[in-house]
């Protein structure tokens, strides 16, 4: 089981790498829908996250995650034993 802080740290690195946003600018309340990523880029980002954490999001989960915090909570749920 991974704690939320560790997940957030790893997730921030992944998003920074994928989107070229600065690590400092990726806050838990950053809204992905308003971040300038188009639909295609968001799906690609979700795929990278799935592969990094070895999980799979359903379509509705992929659509429902609005903020970084939402993703952290979802990963925590899915990786919980």
């Amino acid at each position: 089981m991974t704690d939320n802080k560790t997940i957030l740290h790893r997730l921030t690195e992944i998003i920074a790498e994928k989107t070229k946003l600065s690590v400092n600018g990726i806050k838990p309340d950053l809204n992905l829908e308003a971040s300038g990523l188009d639909s295609f880029a968001r799906i690609e980002l979700i795929l990278v996250i799935e592969e990094a954490f070895d999980i799979e999001f359903s379509d509705s989960e992929s659509a429902n995650v609005a903020t970084i915090d939402d993703i952290v909570n979802l990963i925590a749920d899915k990786t919980a034993i």
Partner: peptide, 14 residues
Amino acid sequence: SPQRIMVAMRAISD
């Protein structure tokens, strides 16, 4: 370009 949008966003987030 998408790169330019990202660069602009980065400048603002920094």
